[in-house]
Design a protein around this nucleic acid. Structure first.
Lengths: 233, 233
DNA sequence: ACCATAGTTCGATCTGTGTCGAATCATCCC
DNA sequence: GGGATGATTCGACACAGATCGAACTATGGT
C-alpha cells in the first residue's frame, strides 16, 4: 500500500488536460488508437516541437503512455481511469463553437458513430445497445448490464467471447453515458470485445484524422440484417 | 432534445478547473456544503476581488451554482455530474507536495474521514462500508450495492429511510473509489442519507476550513458499538 | 440616517507558459 | 556511408490571464 501523505493535486491534472493543444491530443487518443507524435502534431494543429513538449508533459503527468517502435514513438491513453476522467469531463463540458465547415462535418460524423476509448459510441453505439436490450440479450440494471442466457448465445454466434471478456481484470459491462446522445451505450470489456468484432468483420473503419468511424457497405447490411436497424436517427 | 451541432470543449472545462485558485474553491465545495464568497476567498488564499472573478467564471461554466441569501451569496457544486468529474480527476491526480506542517495535518485528517460531495469517504467511509458488507446488510455487485432484507431493517433502525432514498431521481447505491484508500465506499442517495443520519446524531461534525470531518465522542462510541469498528486503521 | 459588512467592477501590472525557428539526435533504407 | 524521415532540445518571443489596489454598489444592523 502506498503511504502518500498528500492530497491529490486537482489543479495540476486539470490544467494538464486544459491546455487546448493538449486537449486536442487527448481527444485524438480517446479513439483508443496508438498514434505517433507526427500524427498528433497534425491533429492538434501545432508544430512538431510544440507537440513534443506537450507529449512530454502528458507522459510525465501519467495521462499518456509511450511505446517506441523503430524511429516512431506511439502514444496512447495511459489507463481506463484516465479515459473515464476525460469522459466525465466531456459530459459537463460546454459545446465548442464550430468555426469551419470542415469542423461541422466532423462534429456530425462524431455524433453519428465514433469510438469512446475502446467501444462504440454515438448514434451507432446507442442503436446497437438498444437492439441488445430490446432483444433481451442484455438487461440494464441501473449501473450494469447483465448478459442473459440467450444473449450469451447471441454474442458467441457473433464472434464475441463473453467469458474471456468477463475474466479480464476490468469492469465487464456497464452503461456509459455519451455526450452527444445522453443515452447509455455498452462499455467495459464486453463493449470493447463487441467493437473489435465489428472492426474484424470490416463493418466499420476508422476515418482519417478523427475519432469518428465510418460504416462500410458490409456494415450497413449487417446493421440492417443482424441488428435490425434500418437507419440511425 | 438539444440539437447542439458541436463537440464538447474539453479544454474549456478542464482549464476552468485547472487554475489553482479555482481548484481550491472547488475542493472546498466538494464537501457538499454551500459556502459564501468570503469563506471561499479565505480557503483559496486569494483576495475577495480575485475570488469574485473566479466564482463568476465557475458559474458561467456551469460548475457551480449560486443562491443569494441576504447580502451573502452561497455557492455550491452545480450537479452530481460535476462532482463525479472532479472525483474522477482526483483519482488520476498526482499527490500535491506538502509544504507546511498545517497542510500535512490537514491531509492526514482528510484521509481519516471526510465528505465526498454528500457521503462519507476516507478511512471512516471505507470502514463503515466494509461493516455493512461483512454483516451482509449490503452486497457488492461489481457496479452497485444491493440492500439485503436484513440490511433494510438495519438501515431503518439506524434512522435511514431506504425507500425514500431509492425514489430519488439519482443513482441509489454504488461504490465510489476514493483517492486515499483506493477502496470502494458507499455513494449515491443511500450513502447521502446514511451520512445525514451521522450528522443528525451528532456523531460527526465538520471541521473548520476543510472537507475533513471530526468523529465526536458519541461518534466514537457509536462506531464501536453499532459498527463494531474499534479503530480506523 | 449612519456605519459596517459582503461582494463587485475597473484598470494596471506582471508572471507563466505556449509557440515556433534553428539546430541536434536517432533510426531506417538504399 | 549518406540521405531521408521522425522526433527532441534550446532559446527567444509574445500573449493570455491571474492578481490586487482603489473605488463602487448593495444589504443589514442599530
Amino acid at each position: 500500500m502506498i503511504e502518500s501523505s498528500a492530497k491529490p493535486d486537482l489543479a495540476a491534472i486539470a490544467s494538464l488536460i486544459g491546455e487546448p493543444s493538449r486537449a486536442a491530443i487527448l481527444e485524438a487518443l480517446m479513439s483508443g488508437e496508438s498514434l505517433p507524435a507526427g500524427d498528433l502534431s497534425t491533429r492538434a494543429c501545432v508544430s512538431p516541437q510544440t507537440t513534443s513538449s506537450h507529449l512530454n508533459k502528458l507522459v510525465q503527468g501519467g495521462l499518456v503512455k509511450v511505446e517506441p517502435i523503430g524511429k516512431r514513438r506511439y502514444f496512447k491513453i495511459a489507463s481506463v481511469a484516465v479515459a473515464q476522467a476525460i469522459e466525465a469531463l466531456c459530459l459537463i463540458a460546454p459545446p465548442k463553437k464550430i468555426r469551419s465547415l470542415k469542423a461541422s462535418f466532423e462534429a456530425d460524423a462524431l455524433r453519428q458513430s465514433r469510438t469512446c476509448y475502446d467501444h462504440l459510441a454515438g448514434k451507432l453505439g446507442v442503436a446497437v445497445t438498444e437492439f441488445l436490450i430490446n432483444e433481451k440479450y442484455l438487461k440494464l440494471n441501473p449501473d450494469k448490464f447483465i448478459v442473459t442466457p440467450t444473449g450469451a448465445e447471441w454474442f458467441a454466434s457473433f464472434g464475441v467471447d463473453v467469458d474471456a471478456a468477463r475474466q479480464l481484470r476490468r469492469k465487464f459491462a456497464y452503461p456509459c453515458l455519451d455526450w452527444s446522445e445522453r443515452r447509455p451505450h455498452l462499455a467495459g470489456s464486453l463493449g470493447a470485445a463487441l467493437t473489435s468484432a465489428w472492426f474484424d468483420k470490416g463493418w466499420v473503419a476508422r476515418m482519417q484524422d478523427t475519432r469518428a468511424i465510418r460504416l462500410t457497405k458490409e456494415g450497413q447490411c449487417g446493421l440492417k440484417e443482424v441488428f435490425k436497424v434500418n437507419e440511425l436517427k
